[in-house]
């Protein structure tokens, strides 16, 4: 199988044109699994890892733009990402294992569009926008519009993800990502929850952003729950009262890793865990 390594985007469009049916990848951490299983066997592979423009991180006014080919490890170590988007860093820290985090990229995790993708709940709570580019130009879609189902996205033919745009906001008091897998590393999330909370000095929730992974065909968010939390003190009673809503919002499946019953229960319990955040608590 031919592997092509364009070094600039213009070259990419050219080699893609010459190799219709080629599959595009960067780190290969998802693609290689599929190749080994024979799920896909394209005539050629186009690797994007040498396109420098895809590995940059820069600021545009109130927005940070992350090149889609940035490996997870680079993001975890990046001071700007650590300061502005700790929830994303938390999520990437538990993605796969060190070698996978070194190879895998943020764009790749989005393109795979698995409901278990660890970066996705964080990107949902951060209202990420996905920059899509083809030979003719670029367009931008909110992540929840880009991902349309398990493994399904709005990616056009011969189009790639080039960037992820994250708006800087007033800092959250709490930024956390909790993942439940069947072991502590190299595990696919059985359920996960990304949470950003802004608490007032007296412990009231000024704003809440929540996103569950592995709890439905796509990442699950709930404006209803977020609204219900707003203005309330963060207490176990508040969270307990909202558990029926969580159980309603999620629609998990049975598979070899866990039953839907367990996933639903844990999705609610992860929510309940937020009550453990101490008053005025720093990000846990």
């Amino acid at each position: 199988m031919k592997v092509l390594l364009p070094e600039i985007l213009e070259m990419l469009w050219e080699v893609w044109e010459q190799n219709p049916g080629a599959e595009v990848y960067t780190g290969g951490t998802d693609l290689l699994v599929k190749l080994r299983e024979g799920v896909t066997w394209p005539p050629a592979l186009i690797c994007l890892e040498r396109i420098n423009a895809l590995r940059q991180i820069w600021e545009e006014e109130d927005t940070v733009v992350i090149g889609a080919g940035t490996p997870h490890t680079a993001l975890i170590r990046h001071p700007l990402i650590q300061v502005e988007f700790p929830v994303l860093v938390e999520a990437l820290k538990v993605l796969g294992s060190p070698p996978i985090r070194n190879m895998g990229t943020l764009g790749g995790n989005i393109a795979t569009a698995s409901p278990a993708g660890d970066s996705l709940p964080a990107l949902y709570v951060l209202n990420a926008e996905i920059v899509l580019t083809d030979a003719k130009g670029s367009r931008t879609l909110p992540i929840h519009e880009f991902i349309t189902g398990p493994g399904q996205t709005g990616l056009g033919p011969r189009e790639i993800i080039t960037g992820i745009r994250l708006k800087k906001t007033a800092p959250y008091t709490v930024s956390r990502y909790e993942k439940v897998g069947k072991r502590k590393a190299m595990a696919i999330a059985v359920a996960s929850l990304a949470t950003c909370l802004r608490l007032s000095p007296d412990g009231r929730i000024e704003s809440a952003r929540l996103a569950w992974g592995s709890a439905g065909p796509a990442i699950v968010t709930s404006p209803e729950i977020e609204t219900a939390m707003s203005g309330q003190p963060l207490t176990p009673e508040l969270l307990r009262g909202l558990i029926p809503a969580v159980e309603r919002e999620v629609s998990p499946i049975d598979d070899i890793r866990a039953t839907a019953v367990y996933r639903r229960k844990v999705a609610a319990n992860l929510f309940l865990r937020l009550s453990g955040i101490s008053e005025g608590g720093a990000s846990a």
């Binding site: 294992s97 072991r183 502590k184 590393a185 190299m186 595990a187 070899i256």
Partner: peptide, 15 residues
């Protein structure tokens, strides 16, 4: 139902 290490899980260093 589990015939490789993606579904047959072994403890990692962290476990």
């Amino acid at each position: 139902k589990t015939v490789n290490f993606s579904t047959y899980l072994l403890p990692t260093f962290l476990d």
